[in-house]
Design a protein around this nucleic acid. Structure first.
Lengths: 204, 204, 204, 204
DNA sequence: GATGAATGAGTTTTCATTCAT
DNA sequence: TATGAATGAAAACTCATTCAT
C-alpha cells in the first residue's frame, strides 16, 4: 500500500500548492484590485516560481476564474442551500437578503471583485461567472413563481423582478459599506425584504 | 482688442480639441471596453498626436475620469431636472425609473462603463464618479423623505432605500439587456416602481 | 544465470523505451515541425515522464539528432544497398533518382526535417547528419568516378557533380511536392537522370 | 518650405533607424542563425530600445521577412537583370550559375538563411519568400521554354527542370563552401552549365 | 501649443532542465 | 530506473509617458 500512500501524499501536496496560488491570487485581488493581479506578484506572494503557476493553471484567465470562483464559493453554497430549503417563498427571500448582507459585511473587499467581474461579464466572452449570476437570478425567479403559485404574490415577470431583487440587495450592501457597516444587519435585510414583500403582495 | 479675439479663438479651438479627445475616448470605451482604451488609440481616433493628449490631460487617469463624466452627463442632467421638478414623490420615482431604462436602452454599451467605474470607485482614490453616484442616491433619498413627510410612505432609512432603488433599476436594465431589450420599457419601469411603491406605501 | 536473463530483459525493455521516445519525436517532428517538438510533448506522446527522457538522452539536442537519424534511416539503407550493387553507374544513378523521389512522395513531411537539419548542419557543431549527407555525396561521387573510369562519362570533379546531382534530385522533389505530387514518378526520375546522363556522357 | 525640409529630414531619420534595425537583424541572423535572432539582441545591436522595434515592425515575423528580403535583394536584382537580358538562353543559364556561385562565395553565411527560410516556407503559412523562390524557378523555366522554342533544347517539363537547375546550383554552392571555396568559380559554374546544356541539348 | 519618435519597465508565457522521492 | 513537481531564465510584446523639435 506504499504506492497508494505516496500518491495520496503527492495529491495532497499538489492541492496545497494549487490552493496556495489561489490564496495568493485572492489576497492580491482583494488588496490591489484587478490591476494589481499580475502573474509575477501571484508567484511571489504564493512563494513559488512564475513557471509553477503555469503548471497548475493554463493562463491568467484561468487563475482569475478560479479566484473569483473560490471567493464566492461560500456565498454560493449558503444561498443554494437556503433556496433549496422548503420554507415559504417570502421567508426564503428574507433569508436570502440576510445571507447576502452578512457575507459582504465580512468580505467587503469582494464587492470590488463582483464589479470587476461584471465588467468582464459583458465583454465578448461568456464567462461562467455570468452563468452563475444568471443561475442565481433564475433560482430567485423560481422562488417568486412559487410565491405567485401560492397566491402570495401578484402575477409578475419573475426573471425581471428577480434581477431587481438581487441588485437591490447589492445596493443595500454598497450603502452599508459606504456607511462603514454601522447599522444592524437584520434590520437592513428586513428593509429590503419588506419593500419587496410589500410591493409584491397579492392584494386582491 | 485683437489680443482678446485671438485668445478667444484659441480658447475655442482648445475646447474643440479637448472635446475631440474626449469623444474619441468615449467611443473607444463603448466599443472596446477599458482594455481597448489606450492612449495610442485615443490619439489616432481623435486625429491628434499622442503628445497632444498630454497637453490637455495630465495622464490617462484624467482622461478616463473625464470620459466617464462625459458619458453619463446626459443621464445626469435629465435625472436632475426630473428630480428637481415639483411633481409628487411617487411620480418622480416612476419617472426616474423610466428615464433610467430608456437611457440604457439607447446606450447599452454604457453599462460596461458603469461597472468598470465601480471597480475603480472602490480603489484607493476617491473618484468623483463615486461622489456623483452618492449625490444621486442622496437626491433620491430626499424624494423618499419628502414622500414620508407627506405621509405617502412609511418611515424608512431613506439613504439605504434610495441605494436599493437605484440598484434595482440597474438590475432591471441588466435583465432587459440580457433579454435583448425586447420588452415594453414603460411596463418594465412600472414594474420597478410598483414594487417599491407597494412596498413603501404607508398602510396605517 | 538468472542475472544474465534479468539483464537481458532489462536491456530489451530499455531499448523499447528508447525507441518509443524516438518514435514519438519522429511523429511530432513530422506533424508539427521543429517548433512543435518540445520535451513535454515528446514525453506525453511516448507515454513516459519528462524526467525519463533525460535517462535515455542527455538533452534535447541528442533526441533531435537521433530523431533525424531515425527518420532517414530507411532511405539511407535503400540508397546504400542500391549504390553497393554492381549495376552499371548510369543505372545506379537512375535508380538513385527513382528511389529518392519515391521516398519523398510517401514521406513528404520529411522535407521539412531535411531543411531544418541543414540549418543546424551549418551551425557551430558538426552534426553527424552532416557527415551522413557528405557520405552520400561521397558515394555518388564514387559511382561517377566509376563511370568516368569505364569511359562512360567525361572527366569531372566528381564531388561537386555528385553534390549537384543530389541537390537536383531534391529540386525535383520540391517541385513535385509543390505540384501536389501529381506527375508520374518514373518519368520525373528519368528527367533528372536523362539530363545528367546527357550532360555527363563522354562524346569523344 | 521649412515644413517640407523638416519632414524630409524626419523621414530620412526614420529610414535610418529602420535600416539600422534591419542591419542589426541581418548581422545577427548571419552570425548566430535563426535561434540567435531575438528581439532583445536586435535592439541592443541596433542601439535602440526594445520598444522601438515595434514602432517600425509589427512583430518578429515582419523583421524576419524584411531581413531575409534585404539579404537577398542584391542577388535577386542581379539575377533579374540577367534573365531579362536578350542573350541566348544557354548563355543566360551560364550567367545565372556564375552569378549564383559568386554571390554565395561572398555571402556564404546566407546559405543558412536560405535553409532556415525553406523550413518556414513549407510551414502552414505561405511566406512571400516562397513566392520569390517560385518566381525564380518560373523565370528560369521561361528561359528553358525559350531554348526549346529556338530548337536549342529538346522538349521538357520546364518548371521541373528549372527547379532542378536552381537546386543543382545550390548543391554546387554547398560543395564549394564545404571545400572552403577553394576552386575556380568560373570553372565550377561551367561545370553546372555544361551538364545541363549537355543534358538538355537537342540531338535530333 | 503640437508633434511623434523613442523609451523601458512591466506583462504574459514557454520550456529545457533539475532533483528529491 | 522512473517520476513529475518545480524551476527560472529567456522570449515576445505592450503602452503610458517623455522630450527635442
Amino acid at each position: 500500500m506504499t504506492g497508494d500512500k505516496k500518491q495520496e501524499r503527492r495529491k495532497a501536496l499538489e492541492a496545497l500548492t494549487r490552493q496556495g496560488i489561489l490564496d495568493a491570487a485572492i489576497g492580491l485581488l482583494m488588496r490591489d484590485g484587478i490591476q494589481g493581479l499580475t502573474m509575477d506578484r501571484v508567484a511571489t506572494e504564493a512563494g513559488v516560481a512564475k513557471g509553477t503557476l503555469y503548471v497548475y493553471f493554463t493562463n491568467k484567465e484561468e487563475i482569475l476564474d478560479a479566484t473569483v470562483d473560490a471567493s464566492f464559493d461560500p456565498l454560493i453554497r449558503e444561498l443554494s442551500v437556503l433556496l433549496d430549503d422548503d420554507h415559504a417563498p417570502d421567508r426564503k427571500l428574507a433569508e436570502f437578503s440576510l445571507c447576502h448582507l452578512r457575507f459582504f459585511d465580512e468580505h467587503r473587499e469582494l464587492i470590488r471583485v463582483i464589479f470587476f467581474d461584471r465588467e468582464r461579464m459583458h465583454s465578448e466572452r461568456n464567462h461562467y461567472t455570468d452563468s452563475r449570476y444568471r443561475t442565481f437570478v433564475q433560482r430567485v425567479a423560481e422562488v417568486l413563481d412559487e410565491g405567485v403559485g401560492q397566491g402570495l404574490f401578484s402575477p409578475l415577470d419573475s426573471m425581471k423582478v428577480a434581477a431587481m431583487f438581487v441588485e437591490a440587495n447589492m445596493g443595500m450592501v454598497m450603502q452599508r459599506i459606504h456607511d462603514g457597516i454601522s447599522g444592524d444587519v437584520e434590520k437592513d435585510a428586513r428593509q429590503v425584504t419588506d419593500i419587496f414583500m410589500g410591493g409584491l403582495r397579492n392584494r386582491k
